[in-house]
Amino acid sequence: MDHGTAQIALRPFRADDAETVVAWFRTPEDALAVAGTGAPWPYRAADLVAASTGDDRRPLTVTPVDDPDDVVGHVAVVRVTPTTGRLARIVLAPRLRGRGHSGELVALAVAEARALGLTELALFVVPGNTPALRAYAAAGFVRAAPDREHPEYVRLVRQVA
């Protein structure tokens, strides 16, 4: 991947994007890795739409820069307090995984959080998801104390400058 040229972009999530995203969840473990321990199985488009609803959420669809209708990923920026937030439901299409796009996706999501006035971001990772832990560490996230409400996850945080 040419790191000097953006290859993906974010746009507002549309309900019809959900069908494409949930098609990437072929096993309960796929849904668990993206949607967490409360994810139903099978994970349906309506589940993603419901999880994307609320004034505290900004769900976003990942697309190629040159084709905003081609759904290649999803991320949500969730406001927790006026200045803190978290990234949720971070996923790339299988065809893009392992090609360096996760760093670009996280950078775009961090920029979105910054635009919302957030100064700190957290995210939760299912223990054992080593590729995700490596990708988030490369994006500047560090391990933090477990979240009291979700101690089953590895909690990572980073400042949004």
Rank of each mutant, 00 (worst) to 15 (best):
A139G: 10
Q7D: 11
V78C: 01
T84W: 07
R26T: 15
V154D: 09
R14K: 15
A161Q: 14
T61C: 04
D66F: 08
F13E: 00
I8M: 08
V142S: 14
A122L: 12
A35T: 05
P59R: 03
P146N: 11
A137G: 12
A6G: 14
R97I: 07
A46D: 15
A39Q: 06
V157S: 09
L121T: 00
S102Y: 01
F13A: 03
V72L: 07
H101I: 09
A76I: 03
D55Y: 14
A93T: 12
P82Y: 10
T81Y: 08
G117D: 10
A39S: 07
L92Y: 01
H101K: 08
P42S: 07
T27A: 11
V75F: 03
A137W: 08
V110P: 01
A33P: 03
L116P: 00
Y136S: 04
L108Y: 05
T37D: 13
L96K: 04
V22C: 04
A33K: 12
S102P: 06
I8P: 00
P59S: 08
A6F: 07
R158L: 07
T83A: 11
T63D: 07
F141W: 06
L108K: 04
A9H: 01
P12A: 13
G4A: 13
F25W: 08
R89Q: 15
D2G: 13
H150W: 14
T20N: 08
G117F: 09
A46H: 14
G36E: 02
L123A: 09
A93G: 14
G103V: 08
L60H: 00
A145L: 09
L92H: 00
G98T: 10
A161C: 14
G4S: 13
V71N: 02
E120I: 06
V49P: 02
A39G: 04
D2N: 15
T83H: 15
D30T: 08
P42T: 05
T119Y: 09
T81G: 08
E112Y: 05
P40L: 06
G128H: 05
R97K: 14
L118A: 00
A113H: 04
R134I: 15
A111D: 15
Q159T: 15
A15Y: 13
D69N: 10
A113K: 00
A9Y: 02
V125H: 06
